[in-house]
Measured scan of single mutants.
Amino acid sequence: MTSCHIAEEHIQKVAIFGGTHGNELTGVFLVKHWLENGAEIQRTGLEVKPFITNPRAVKKCTRYIDCDLNRIFDLENLGKKMSEDLPYEVRRAQEINHLFGPKDSEDSYDIIFDLHNTTSNMGCTLILEDSRNNFLIQMFHYIKTSLAPLPCYVYLIEHPSLKYATTRSIAKYPVGIEVGPQPQGVLRADILDQMRKMIKHALDFIHHFNEGKEFPPCAIEVYKIIEKVDYPRDENGEIAAIIHPNLQDQDWKPLHPGDPMFLTLDGKTIPLGGDCTVYPVFVNEAAYYEKKEAFAKTTKLTLNAKSIRCCLH
Protein backbone atom coordinates (compact mmCIF):
# COMPACT_ATOMS: atom_id res chain seq x y z
CA MET A 1 0.00 0.00 0.00
CA THR A 2 1.25 3.48 -0.78
CA SER A 3 2.52 5.19 2.33
CA CYS A 4 0.80 8.50 2.86
CA HIS A 5 0.24 11.29 5.27
CA ILE A 6 -3.15 10.63 6.84
CA ALA A 7 -5.12 13.78 7.64
CA GLU A 8 -6.61 13.77 11.13
CA GLU A 9 -10.30 13.13 10.49
CA HIS A 10 -12.88 13.64 7.80
CA ILE A 11 -14.21 17.18 7.50
CA GLN A 12 -17.58 17.74 9.16
CA LYS A 13 -18.20 21.45 9.72
CA VAL A 14 -17.51 24.19 7.18
CA ALA A 15 -18.45 27.87 7.35
CA ILE A 16 -18.46 30.43 4.55
CA PHE A 17 -18.06 33.98 5.86
CA GLY A 18 -19.18 37.02 3.89
CA GLY A 19 -19.18 40.62 5.02
CA THR A 20 -16.16 40.48 7.31
CA HIS A 21 -15.62 43.82 5.59
CA GLY A 22 -19.05 45.28 4.92
CA ASN A 23 -18.18 47.05 1.66
CA GLU A 24 -16.66 43.99 -0.05
CA LEU A 25 -19.86 42.96 -1.71
CA THR A 26 -19.19 39.70 -3.55
CA GLY A 27 -19.02 37.65 -0.36
CA VAL A 28 -21.98 39.54 1.09
CA PHE A 29 -24.08 38.88 -2.01
CA LEU A 30 -23.14 35.20 -2.29
CA VAL A 31 -23.67 34.46 1.41
CA LYS A 32 -27.06 36.19 1.39
CA HIS A 33 -27.98 34.11 -1.67
CA TRP A 34 -26.84 30.87 -0.04
CA LEU A 35 -28.76 31.68 3.14
CA GLU A 36 -31.90 31.76 0.99
CA ASN A 37 -30.97 28.93 -1.35
CA GLY A 38 -27.96 26.88 -0.31
CA ALA A 39 -28.32 23.89 -2.63
CA GLU A 40 -25.12 24.64 -4.57
CA ILE A 41 -22.93 24.64 -1.45
CA GLN A 42 -24.31 21.47 0.12
CA ARG A 43 -22.31 18.26 -0.08
CA THR A 44 -23.33 14.84 1.28
CA GLY A 45 -22.19 14.31 4.86
CA LEU A 46 -20.95 17.88 5.23
CA GLU A 47 -22.43 20.72 7.24
CA VAL A 48 -21.88 23.98 5.35
CA LYS A 49 -22.99 27.18 7.08
CA PRO A 50 -23.03 30.54 5.23
CA PHE A 51 -22.73 33.46 7.64
CA ILE A 52 -22.65 37.27 7.54
CA THR A 53 -19.84 38.19 9.91
CA ASN A 54 -20.24 41.96 10.31
CA PRO A 55 -23.94 42.75 9.75
CA ARG A 56 -23.74 46.36 10.99
CA ALA A 57 -20.92 47.16 8.56
CA VAL A 58 -22.81 45.38 5.77
CA LYS A 59 -25.90 47.48 6.49
CA LYS A 60 -23.84 50.69 6.27
CA CYS A 61 -21.73 49.38 3.36
CA THR A 62 -18.54 50.30 5.20
CA ARG A 63 -15.42 48.26 5.98
CA TYR A 64 -16.10 48.26 9.73
CA ILE A 65 -17.89 50.17 12.48
CA ASP A 66 -15.23 50.64 15.20
CA CYS A 67 -12.21 48.56 14.15
CA ASP A 68 -11.16 45.96 11.58
CA LEU A 69 -12.90 42.67 12.40
CA ASN A 70 -10.27 40.77 10.42
CA ARG A 71 -7.40 41.77 12.73
CA ILE A 72 -8.75 41.14 16.24
CA PHE A 73 -9.13 37.37 16.60
CA ASP A 74 -6.28 37.14 19.09
CA LEU A 75 -6.62 35.67 22.57
CA GLU A 76 -6.43 39.14 24.17
CA ASN A 77 -9.51 40.47 22.37
CA LEU A 78 -11.40 37.19 22.49
CA GLY A 79 -10.79 37.01 26.24
CA LYS A 80 -11.94 40.53 27.15
CA LYS A 81 -14.85 40.81 29.54
CA MET A 82 -17.99 41.47 27.51
CA SER A 83 -19.37 44.98 27.98
CA GLU A 84 -21.10 47.70 25.97
CA ASP A 85 -17.89 49.75 26.21
CA LEU A 86 -16.03 47.31 23.96
CA PRO A 87 -15.75 48.21 20.26
CA TYR A 88 -18.56 46.63 18.26
CA GLU A 89 -16.20 44.37 16.29
CA VAL A 90 -14.56 43.04 19.47
CA ARG A 91 -17.98 42.06 20.81
CA ARG A 92 -18.84 40.56 17.44
CA ALA A 93 -15.54 38.64 17.38
CA GLN A 94 -16.43 37.07 20.72
CA GLU A 95 -19.87 36.08 19.39
CA ILE A 96 -18.30 34.54 16.26
CA ASN A 97 -15.72 32.71 18.37
CA HIS A 98 -18.55 31.29 20.48
CA LEU A 99 -20.48 30.16 17.39
CA PHE A 100 -17.61 28.74 15.32
CA GLY A 101 -14.80 28.17 17.83
CA PRO A 102 -13.57 28.40 20.41
CA LYS A 103 -10.26 29.19 18.73
CA ASP A 104 -7.57 26.53 19.24
CA SER A 105 -10.10 23.99 20.53
CA GLU A 106 -11.33 20.61 19.33
CA ASP A 107 -14.84 22.05 19.00
CA SER A 108 -13.94 24.71 16.43
CA TYR A 109 -15.17 24.47 12.85
CA ASP A 110 -12.95 22.41 10.58
CA ILE A 111 -12.77 24.96 7.76
CA ILE A 112 -13.75 28.61 7.41
CA PHE A 113 -13.73 30.23 3.99
CA ASP A 114 -13.62 34.01 4.43
CA LEU A 115 -14.69 35.88 1.28
CA HIS A 116 -13.03 39.19 0.44
CA ASN A 117 -12.64 41.65 -2.41
CA THR A 118 -9.69 43.86 -3.18
CA THR A 119 -9.45 47.01 -5.27
CA SER A 120 -6.03 45.73 -6.40
CA ASN A 121 -5.54 43.78 -9.61
CA MET A 122 -4.97 40.46 -7.85
CA GLY A 123 -7.36 38.17 -9.72
CA CYS A 124 -8.24 34.99 -7.84
CA THR A 125 -6.18 34.70 -4.67
CA LEU A 126 -6.10 32.07 -1.92
CA ILE A 127 -4.58 33.17 1.38
CA LEU A 128 -2.58 30.58 3.32
CA GLU A 129 -1.51 31.05 6.95
CA ASP A 130 0.63 27.91 7.45
CA SER A 131 3.26 26.68 4.99
CA ARG A 132 3.33 23.20 6.56
CA ASN A 133 -0.37 22.41 6.20
CA ASN A 134 -0.55 19.44 3.83
CA PHE A 135 -4.35 19.48 3.70
CA LEU A 136 -4.63 23.12 2.61
CA ILE A 137 -1.75 22.88 0.14
CA GLN A 138 -3.55 19.91 -1.43
CA MET A 139 -6.84 21.84 -1.47
CA PHE A 140 -5.21 24.90 -3.04
CA HIS A 141 -3.54 22.69 -5.66
CA TYR A 142 -6.95 21.20 -6.51
CA ILE A 143 -8.58 24.64 -6.77
CA LYS A 144 -5.75 26.04 -8.91
CA THR A 145 -5.88 23.03 -11.25
CA SER A 146 -9.67 23.19 -11.50
CA LEU A 147 -9.68 26.91 -12.32
CA ALA A 148 -7.00 26.66 -15.02
CA PRO A 149 -6.41 28.33 -17.41
CA LEU A 150 -7.74 31.11 -15.14
CA PRO A 151 -4.79 32.01 -12.88
CA CYS A 152 -5.16 31.54 -9.14
CA TYR A 153 -2.43 32.85 -6.85
CA VAL A 154 -1.52 31.77 -3.32
CA TYR A 155 -0.51 34.45 -0.82
CA LEU A 156 1.35 33.07 2.20
CA ILE A 157 1.03 35.40 5.20
CA GLU A 158 3.22 33.35 7.54
CA HIS A 159 5.63 35.86 9.11
CA PRO A 160 7.50 36.03 12.44
CA SER A 161 6.38 39.56 13.33
CA LEU A 162 3.32 40.33 11.18
CA LYS A 163 0.44 38.80 13.10
CA TYR A 164 -2.93 39.04 11.38
CA ALA A 165 -5.37 37.43 13.90
CA THR A 166 -7.90 36.86 11.12
CA THR A 167 -11.58 36.10 11.49
CA ARG A 168 -11.08 32.70 9.87
CA SER A 169 -8.21 31.77 12.22
CA ILE A 170 -10.66 30.24 14.70
CA ALA A 171 -11.02 27.25 12.32
CA LYS A 172 -8.67 24.30 12.19
CA TYR A 173 -8.13 25.09 8.50
CA PRO A 174 -8.50 28.82 7.75
CA VAL A 175 -8.88 29.83 4.09
CA GLY A 176 -8.90 33.42 2.86
CA ILE A 177 -10.40 34.02 -0.59
CA GLU A 178 -9.61 37.37 -2.19
CA VAL A 179 -10.86 38.33 -5.66
CA GLY A 180 -10.32 41.60 -7.51
CA PRO A 181 -10.15 44.17 -8.84
CA GLN A 182 -13.50 45.41 -7.61
CA PRO A 183 -14.28 48.83 -6.13
CA GLN A 184 -15.66 49.00 -2.61
CA GLY A 185 -19.45 48.98 -2.52
CA VAL A 186 -19.71 47.56 -6.05
CA LEU A 187 -20.72 44.17 -7.48
CA ARG A 188 -19.09 42.85 -10.67
CA ALA A 189 -20.49 39.75 -12.37
CA ASP A 190 -17.07 38.48 -13.49
CA ILE A 191 -15.61 38.74 -9.98
CA LEU A 192 -18.68 37.06 -8.47
CA ASP A 193 -18.43 34.19 -10.95
CA GLN A 194 -14.75 33.64 -10.11
CA MET A 195 -15.36 33.59 -6.36
CA ARG A 196 -18.32 31.26 -6.78
CA LYS A 197 -16.15 28.82 -8.75
CA MET A 198 -13.42 28.92 -6.11
CA ILE A 199 -15.93 27.91 -3.43
CA LYS A 200 -17.39 25.18 -5.67
CA HIS A 201 -13.99 23.61 -6.30
CA ALA A 202 -13.04 23.88 -2.61
CA LEU A 203 -16.22 22.09 -1.53
CA ASP A 204 -15.73 19.46 -4.25
CA PHE A 205 -12.23 18.81 -2.90
CA ILE A 206 -13.58 18.33 0.63
CA HIS A 207 -16.27 15.98 -0.69
CA HIS A 208 -13.70 13.85 -2.56
CA PHE A 209 -11.45 13.83 0.51
CA ASN A 210 -14.30 12.73 2.79
CA GLU A 211 -15.16 9.91 0.39
CA GLY A 212 -11.67 8.48 0.84
CA LYS A 213 -9.94 9.69 -2.31
CA GLU A 214 -6.18 9.77 -1.95
CA PHE A 215 -4.46 12.92 -3.20
CA PRO A 216 -0.87 12.21 -4.32
CA PRO A 217 2.07 14.44 -3.37
CA CYS A 218 1.88 17.85 -5.01
CA ALA A 219 3.62 21.21 -5.16
CA ILE A 220 2.26 24.74 -5.49
CA GLU A 221 3.86 28.10 -6.17
CA VAL A 222 3.19 30.65 -3.43
CA TYR A 223 4.06 34.28 -2.76
CA LYS A 224 5.28 34.76 0.79
CA ILE A 225 5.05 38.17 2.44
CA ILE A 226 8.37 39.84 3.22
CA GLU A 227 7.26 43.29 4.36
CA LYS A 228 4.68 46.01 3.84
CA VAL A 229 5.71 49.25 2.12
CA ASP A 230 4.28 52.64 3.09
CA TYR A 231 3.87 55.59 0.77
CA PRO A 232 6.62 58.22 0.91
CA ARG A 233 5.49 60.91 3.35
CA ASP A 234 6.34 64.54 4.12
CA GLU A 235 7.25 65.99 7.51
CA ASN A 236 3.54 66.22 8.40
CA GLY A 237 2.94 62.55 7.67
CA GLU A 238 1.01 63.29 4.48
CA ILE A 239 1.45 61.11 1.39
CA ALA A 240 4.17 62.68 -0.78
CA ALA A 241 4.16 60.26 -3.73
CA ILE A 242 1.70 57.87 -5.34
CA ILE A 243 1.99 54.45 -6.97
CA HIS A 244 3.95 54.80 -10.23
CA PRO A 245 1.95 54.03 -13.42
CA ASN A 246 4.42 51.24 -14.25
CA LEU A 247 3.58 49.51 -10.95
CA GLN A 248 -0.18 50.14 -10.95
CA ASP A 249 -2.18 46.94 -11.63
CA GLN A 250 1.02 44.87 -11.75
CA ASP A 251 0.28 42.64 -8.76
CA TRP A 252 2.21 39.32 -8.82
CA LYS A 253 4.60 40.65 -11.50
CA PRO A 254 8.34 40.88 -10.74
CA LEU A 255 9.57 44.26 -9.50
CA HIS A 256 13.31 44.57 -9.93
CA PRO A 257 15.73 46.89 -8.10
CA GLY A 258 15.68 50.22 -9.91
CA ASP A 259 12.16 49.72 -11.29
CA PRO A 260 9.75 52.64 -10.74
CA MET A 261 7.79 52.32 -7.51
CA PHE A 262 6.37 55.77 -6.64
CA LEU A 263 5.86 59.07 -8.46
CA THR A 264 5.87 62.50 -6.82
CA LEU A 265 3.62 65.33 -7.97
CA ASP A 266 6.61 67.15 -9.44
CA GLY A 267 7.37 64.13 -11.62
CA LYS A 268 10.19 62.50 -9.67
CA THR A 269 10.32 58.70 -9.86
CA ILE A 270 11.21 56.78 -6.70
CA PRO A 271 12.62 53.35 -7.66
CA LEU A 272 12.79 50.10 -5.73
CA GLY A 273 16.02 49.91 -3.76
CA GLY A 274 17.97 46.92 -2.55
CA ASP A 275 19.28 44.05 -4.63
CA CYS A 276 16.34 41.61 -4.61
CA THR A 277 13.51 41.13 -7.08
CA VAL A 278 10.16 41.13 -5.28
CA TYR A 279 6.56 40.45 -6.27
CA PRO A 280 4.16 43.19 -5.16
CA VAL A 281 0.61 42.43 -4.00
CA PHE A 282 -2.27 44.58 -2.78
CA VAL A 283 -0.88 47.38 -4.94
CA ASN A 284 -2.72 50.64 -4.14
CA GLU A 285 -5.44 48.82 -2.16
CA ALA A 286 -8.05 51.40 -1.13
CA ALA A 287 -8.61 49.91 2.34
CA TYR A 288 -4.90 50.03 3.19
CA TYR A 289 -4.39 53.78 2.95
CA GLU A 290 -5.43 54.04 6.61
CA LYS A 291 -3.02 51.22 7.44
CA LYS A 292 -0.18 53.08 5.68
CA GLU A 293 0.42 50.27 3.21
CA ALA A 294 1.05 51.07 -0.46
CA PHE A 295 1.74 47.43 -1.29
CA ALA A 296 3.29 44.31 0.19
CA LYS A 297 6.55 42.80 -1.03
CA THR A 298 6.55 39.05 -1.51
CA THR A 299 9.03 36.43 -2.56
CA LYS A 300 8.11 33.47 -4.76
CA LEU A 301 8.68 29.94 -3.51
CA THR A 302 7.38 26.39 -3.87
CA LEU A 303 5.55 24.45 -1.16
CA ASN A 304 5.28 20.68 -1.23
CA ALA A 305 2.55 18.55 0.30
CA LYS A 306 2.61 14.88 1.16
CA SER A 307 -0.06 12.53 -0.08
CA ILE A 308 -3.23 12.77 2.01
CA ARG A 309 -6.21 10.54 2.53
CA CYS A 310 -9.11 10.67 4.95
CA CYS A 311 -9.21 8.27 7.89
CA LEU A 312 -12.47 6.49 7.10
CA HIS A 313 -14.21 4.86 10.07
Results as ranks from 00 to 15, higher is better:
residue 281 V to L: 07
residue 115 L to Q: 02
residue 191 I to D: 02
residue 186 V to H: 03
residue 24 E to A: 08
residue 127 I to G: 04
residue 203 L to A: 02
residue 5 H to C: 10
residue 251 D to A: 02
residue 80 K to Y: 14
residue 163 K to D: 14
residue 301 L to H: 14
residue 119 T to K: 00
residue 190 D to N: 06
residue 96 I to K: 06
residue 39 A to D: 10
residue 261 M to F: 00
residue 150 L to K: 14
residue 187 L to S: 09
residue 59 K to I: 15
residue 154 V to P: 03
residue 16 I to D: 02
residue 57 A to S: 11
residue 284 N to M: 03
residue 55 P to F: 09
residue 199 I to A: 03
residue 125 T to L: 05
residue 147 L to M: 13
residue 114 D to C: 05
residue 72 I to R: 13
residue 225 I to L: 12
residue 192 L to G: 01
residue 7 A to Q: 08
residue 140 F to D: 01
residue 155 Y to G: 05
residue 147 L to I: 13
residue 83 S to P: 07
residue 16 I to T: 01
residue 236 N to A: 12
residue 296 A to Q: 12
residue 74 D to H: 12
residue 191 I to W: 02
residue 61 C to A: 13
residue 4 C to I: 14
residue 48 V to D: 01
residue 183 P to K: 02
residue 209 F to E: 00
residue 310 C to D: 05
residue 216 P to Q: 06
residue 49 K to F: 06
residue 172 K to Q: 15
residue 177 I to Q: 00
residue 215 F to V: 04
residue 171 A to R: 05
residue 129 E to S: 10
residue 218 C to L: 04
residue 137 I to L: 08
residue 202 A to S: 07
residue 222 V to F: 01
residue 98 H to M: 14
residue 47 E to G: 12
residue 5 H to S: 10
residue 97 N to E: 11
residue 55 P to S: 07
residue 198 M to Q: 03
residue 247 L to H: 02
residue 160 P to R: 15
residue 312 L to I: 09
residue 61 C to W: 08
residue 172 K to H: 08
residue 45 G to M: 05
residue 155 Y to M: 08
residue 22 G to A: 08
residue 304 N to P: 13
residue 278 V to S: 04
residue 58 V to T: 10
residue 200 K to I: 07
residue 174 P to N: 13
residue 51 F to T: 06
residue 137 I to F: 01
residue 20 T to R: 02
residue 41 I to T: 05
residue 302 T to A: 06
residue 261 M to P: 02
residue 63 R to S: 11
residue 162 L to R: 12
residue 61 C to I: 15
residue 235 E to V: 09
residue 81 K to V: 14
residue 105 S to C: 12
residue 180 G to M: 02
residue 222 V to I: 05
residue 246 N to M: 10
residue 173 Y to G: 05
residue 134 N to T: 07
residue 164 Y to A: 14
residue 294 A to H: 01
residue 175 V to R: 01
residue 45 G to T: 10
residue 185 G to H: 04
residue 140 F to Q: 02
residue 306 K to S: 15
residue 267 G to A: 06
residue 273 G to R: 14
residue 225 I to N: 09
residue 20 T to A: 04
residue 138 Q to L: 00
residue 155 Y to T: 12
residue 123 G to D: 03
residue 55 P to R: 15
residue 293 E to L: 15
residue 142 Y to L: 00
residue 17 F to K: 04
residue 218 C to S: 04
residue 134 N to P: 14
residue 30 L to H: 01
residue 58 V to I: 08
residue 229 V to Y: 03
residue 94 Q to P: 06
residue 312 L to M: 07
residue 89 E to N: 05
residue 167 T to A: 15
residue 250 Q to V: 03
residue 254 P to Y: 02
residue 291 K to E: 09
residue 153 Y to T: 07
residue 147 L to V: 09
residue 84 E to G: 08
residue 47 E to R: 09
residue 182 Q to R: 02
residue 109 Y to Q: 04
residue 238 E to Q: 13
residue 228 K to Q: 15
residue 234 D to Q: 08
residue 82 M to Q: 13
residue 89 E to T: 05
residue 311 C to H: 11
residue 113 F to G: 02
residue 22 G to T: 11
residue 181 P to T: 01
residue 92 R to P: 06
residue 183 P to N: 08
residue 263 L to N: 04
residue 163 K to G: 11
residue 264 T to W: 04
residue 101 G to M: 06
residue 63 R to I: 04
residue 306 K to I: 10
residue 207 H to P: 02
residue 215 F to G: 02
residue 185 G to S: 09
residue 168 R to K: 08
residue 139 M to V: 00
residue 92 R to E: 07
residue 152 C to L: 12
residue 75 L to H: 14
residue 81 K to W: 14
residue 57 A to P: 04
residue 299 T to V: 15
residue 149 P to F: 03
residue 196 R to V: 01
residue 308 I to S: 03
residue 117 N to M: 03
residue 197 K to T: 15
residue 167 T to K: 08
residue 256 H to Q: 13
residue 23 N to D: 15
residue 10 H to C: 11
residue 184 Q to H: 14
residue 214 E to R: 07
residue 102 P to W: 08
residue 224 K to G: 05
residue 102 P to I: 06
residue 39 A to S: 07
residue 305 A to K: 00
residue 16 I to A: 01
residue 46 L to Q: 02
residue 228 K to V: 08
residue 81 K to E: 14
residue 109 Y to V: 13
residue 276 C to R: 12
residue 182 Q to E: 06
residue 311 C to D: 14
residue 249 D to G: 08
residue 139 M to I: 02
residue 132 R to I: 05
residue 274 G to C: 04
residue 244 H to N: 01
residue 17 F to I: 09
residue 295 F to Q: 00
residue 35 L to F: 06
residue 140 F to N: 00
residue 294 A to F: 02
residue 255 L to P: 02
residue 181 P to N: 02
residue 73 F to C: 10
residue 169 S to E: 06
residue 285 E to C: 11
residue 42 Q to H: 11
residue 159 H to P: 14
residue 264 T to F: 06
residue 77 N to V: 12
residue 173 Y to Q: 14
residue 206 I to F: 01
residue 84 E to L: 14
residue 149 P to N: 05
residue 113 F to Y: 03
residue 312 L to C: 14
residue 62 T to I: 13
residue 118 T to K: 06
residue 95 E to C: 07
residue 86 L to C: 15
residue 65 I to Y: 07
residue 126 L to Y: 00
residue 204 D to L: 02
residue 135 F to R: 00
residue 26 T to E: 02
residue 225 I to G: 10
residue 301 L to C: 09
residue 201 H to W: 04
residue 162 L to C: 11
residue 300 K to Y: 04
residue 157 I to D: 14
residue 13 K to E: 03
residue 147 L to T: 05
residue 36 E to R: 08
residue 282 F to N: 15
residue 262 F to V: 00
residue 262 F to K: 01
residue 57 A to I: 05
residue 262 F to P: 00
residue 37 N to M: 09
residue 231 Y to K: 00
residue 150 L to R: 11
